[in-house]
Design a protein around this nucleic acid. Structure first.
Length: 559
RNA sequence: GGCCCUGUAGCCUAGUCUGGAUAAGGCGAUAGCCUUCUAAACUAUAUGUUAAGAGAGCUAUAGAUCACGAGUUCGAAUCUCGUCAGGGCCGCCA
C-alpha cells in the first residue's frame, strides 16, 4: 500500500474503530483521490451517512500527505498532496526493485504449455505460454520462488499417427524447413488418410503397441521424430522467451500412477466397473472418471495423479499451478478431487489457472484438421509488419538493427494481446488486431518507454535533489498518483493470479505519461521544473520497465 | 438432459470476487492539434521560417435499458433466483 493510502487508512481506523477500511477511488478525480463511503457507519452511529461524513470532515485534520478532506454527500473524500507524496516516491520508484514483494519463503510450481509433441505450436500455445511466463514472473517479482515446468505429451495415439504418417508418406525424407513443422505435416497427412480409409486405424494401434513393447525399430523412429519436434520447439521457445526449470515427459511416467490408483481401489476410494477402475464423483457434482481402462492401461488422468505427487516429492513445493485451457476445467476438478480423496496433503494447494480458448473468425481451431494459426507464422507476419513500420521511420538503420527492433516490437504486440484480457475471456483472434501497434497494444507501451529514453538522452541525467512542489499540473499529479499504486497492483495481481492487471496498469501509466508529455514541457522549462520532471519520467521509465518485464516484454530505448 | 464459463456503445474489452457518486479504456466514426523531445528543406543560425509529410502521440464530439425479468438492500453492472443467447465439458482421448 502506498504511503498516502496507508495514512488515510490509519486515520480512519483510529477515528471510526473499524478494523477494515475499504477505500474507493472517486469516479471523478476532481472530487479527490480516495473516498470513504460513510454508509457502512450509519447503522452503528444511528445517523445518516451525510451527517457522518460532515462530522468526520470536521474532526479529521489534513496532514502533510493529505491535502484536503471534504465531504460530498455521504462520501468523505481525501485529496492527496501529490507533491509531498512525490518526495520519497520518485526516488523509490526509480529503483529496480520498486514494487517487488517481500520474500514469501514459498515455492510455487507453474506448469504451462505442455504440448502434444506430434505437431508444431499454434496460437493457443502462444496464449498459454504468455500467461504462464507472465504469471511466473509476476509471482517471482512478488516474492515467491518459482519453478517453471512443462510436461511434453510425447506418446500415445497422436504421436503414433505422426510416426505412421512419416513412414507412409515421407519415408527417409528429412525436414527442409522448421523440423517440428515437418512432423506436423506427417501427422496431418496421416489424419487425412485415416479419414479416407478408417481401416488404417488398426495399423496405428499396432504401432502404438509395438512402441509400448519397446520394439527397437519403432522406438528409433519415435526418437527421430521427437528430436525434430524439440529442435523446432527450441527455436520458438527462444524467440518467445519461454524457458523451463524442469521438463517432464509423458513417456517416462505414463505407466506410473496405476499403483496409487490400485491402492485407492483396495481402500474402497474407487470402484471397479466392467473391468475398469472408476472414481465416482457425481456426489460432488463432478462427472465420474475412469482411471484405469478395462484393458488395464492407464490414462492421462492416471499419469496426472502420479505427476502431482512427483512434483511435490521432487521439489517440496508449497503450491502447484496448472495453466491449462478452460476445455479442461472438468479434468482438473476431477484431478483435484481425486487427490483429495486419496488424502494427499498437497491436494488443497493445487490451482487450475483456466483461460478462455482463442477462436478463429472461422471457428474453433482444430489441429487435426489443420485449421490452426501456426505460432511461427504469426510471429513472422507480425515481425515483418514491424519491420516495415521501422523502415518507414528510420532510413539509416542497419538491417541487423532493424531486425532486432522488429523482433522486439512484433513479439511485444503478440504477447500483449494474449495477456491484456482477463484469463477467462475467450476471444476471436483477429489478425489485424494482432499486428496492430496502436491503441491498447504492447508497442504503445514500449513507445512510451522509448520516448522517455530519448528525452533523457537529450537532457542528460537529472540532479538528485528534487523540488517536487513544481510538479503541480493535473498531468504531473496523475502520473505521481499512478506511480504510487504500482506495488498494490503487483500485490493484487499476484494474489489473484491475474497478469492482465499488470498489462492494464502498464497501459494506464503509458497513457498518463503520453498525456503528461503533451501537456508539460520538460526540456524547455525552468531549471527546477526541468529537473523535477526529468526525475519524474525517470521513475515512469523504471516502472514501465518493471511492468513490461513481468509481461515478458522488452523495454526498448529506441524503436 | 447434467455441470462449468460468458453476455457491458457499431466492434473489442476493463470494472463483478470485496455492492456506493455522472459505468472506464481501445478500435472504428466525426472534428481538431502540427510540437517540446520524430523529421525535411531554407537562411536570417533563431525556442526562426516554409511547403509538405509523417504520426506506434494528443484533444474534443457522438455513441450504453450493463442480455431480459424478479428478489435482497438506504443503494445492484456487481449478490440471489428465474428466463433467454453463446461457448466448453460430460466413464475407458488429451
Amino acid at each position: 500500500m502506498n504511503k498516502a493510502k496507508e495514512e488515510i487508512t490509519n486515520i480512519l481506523k483510529k477515528e471510526t474503530k473499524l478494523k477494515e477500511i475499504n477505500l474507493e477511488v472517486p469516479k471523478d478525480s476532481a472530487l479527490g483521490d480516495y473516498a470513504f463511503p460513510c454508509f457502512q457507519l450509519s447503522k452503528q452511529y444511528k445517523q445518516n451517512p451525510i451527517e457522518i461524513a460532515m462530522n468526520l470532515a470536521k474532526t479529521l485534520k489534513p496532514t502533510k500527505l493529505i491535502k484536503e478532506i471534504t465531504e460530498v454527500g455521504p462520501y468523505l473524500n481525501f485529496t492527496i498532496n501529490k507533491q509531498a507524496l512525490a518526495e520519497s516516491l520518485i526516488k523509490d520508484s526509480q529503483k529496480q526493485d520498486y514494487g517487488k514483494g517481500k520474500d514469501k519463503k514459498q515455492k510455487i510450481m507453474v506448469e504451462f504449455l505442455s504440448p502434444n509433441t506430434n505437431k508444431a505450436l499454434h496460437l493457443g500455445h502462444i496464449r498459454n505460454s504468455a500467461i504462464g511466463e507472465s504469471l511466473s514472473s509476476l509471482l517471482k517479482f512478488n516474492g515467491y520462488k518459482i519453478i517453471k515446468t512443462s510436461i511434453n505429451n510425447d506418446r500415445g495415439t497422436g504421436v503414433t499417427e505422426a510416426m505412421l504418417g512419416y513412414q507412409k508418406f515421407f519415408k527417409n525424407k528429412f525436414p527442409k524447413g522448421k523440423p517440428d513443422k515437418f512432423v506436423s505435416d506427417c501427422y496431418v497427412a496421416m489424419k487425412k488418410a485415416l479419414k479416407e480409409q478408417p481401416a488404417l486405424d488398426s495399423e496405428v494401434k499396432q504401432m502404438l503397441l509395438k512402441w509400448e513393447q519397446k520394439d527397437k525399430e519403432t522406438i528409433d523412429l519415435w526418437k527421430k521424430l521427437m528430436k525434430w519436434v524439440y529442435q523446432g520447439y527450441k527455436e520458438t521457445y527462444k524467440r518467445l522467451g519461454i524457458s523451463f526449470d524442469k521438463e517432464y515427459y509423458e513417456s517416462d511416467i505414463y505407466a506410473k500412477g496405476k499403483e496409487i490408483v490400485l491402492e485407492g481401489l483396495k481402500k474402497g476410494i474407487f470402484e471397479k466397473q466392467e473391468g475398469a477402475v472408476i472414481a465416482k464423483l457425481e456426489k460432488y457434482r463432478i462427472p465420474d472418471k475412469v482411471l484405469i481402462k478395462s484393458d488395464n492401461t492407464s490414462l492421462y488422468m492416471t499419469q496426472d495423479i502420479y505427476l502431482a505427487k512427483l512434483k511435490h516429492d521432487e521439489f517440496k513445493i508449497d503450491k502447484s499451478i496448472y495453466v491449462v485451457g478452460s476445455e479442461q476445467d472438468n479434468h482438473f476438478r476431477q484431478l483435484f478431487k481425486i487427490l483429495e480423496l486419496l488424502k494427499f496433503r498437497f491436494a488443497k494447494d493445487l490451482f487450475h489457472l483456466s483461460y478462455g480458448l482463442v477462436h478463429l473468425p472461422s471457428g474453433r481451431m482444430k489441429s487435426r484438421e489443420g485449421t490452426v494459426v501456426d505460432a511461427d507464422d504469426l510471429i513472422e507476419e507480425t515481425v515483418n509488419l514491424a519491420k516495415k513500420e521501422i523502415k518507414k521511420r528510420h532510413k539509416d538503420l542497419s538491417e541487423k538493427e532493424v531486425n532486432k527492433r522488429a523482433d522486439m516490437i512484433g513479439i511485444a504486440a503478440i504477447k500483449f494481446l494474449m495477456i491484456k484480457f482477463d484469463n477467462t475471456t475467450e476471444f476471436i483472434f483477429d489478425p489485424a488486431e494482432a499486428i496492430s501497434f496502436e491503441g491498447e497494444t504492447g508497442p504503445y507501451c514500449q513507445y512510451a518507454h522509448a520516448r522517455i529514453s530519448s528525452i533523457l538522452k537529450k537532457a542528460g541525467k537529472p540532479k538528485n535533489s528534487i523540488k517536487t512542489e513544481v510538479l503541480n499540473t493535473d498531468e504531473d499529479e496523475k502520473v505521481i498518483l499512478l506511480l504510487s499504486k504500482f506495488p498494490e497492483v503487483v500485490e493484487q495481481a499476484a494474489k489473484s493470479y491475474k497478469p492482465h492487471l499488470i498489462a492494464r496498469y502498464v497501459l494506464d501509466l503509458s497513457q498518463a505519461f503520453n498525456e503528461f508529455y503533451h501537456a508539460c514541457p520538460i526540456i524547455q522549462s525552468d531549471d527546477n521544473t526541468k529537473n523535477a520532471r526529468l526525475n519524474l519520467i525517470l521513475a515512469v521509465q523504471q516502472v514501465l520497465k518493471n511492468g513490461l518485464n513481468i509481461l515478458g516484454i522488452k523495454a526498448p530505448d529506441a524503436m
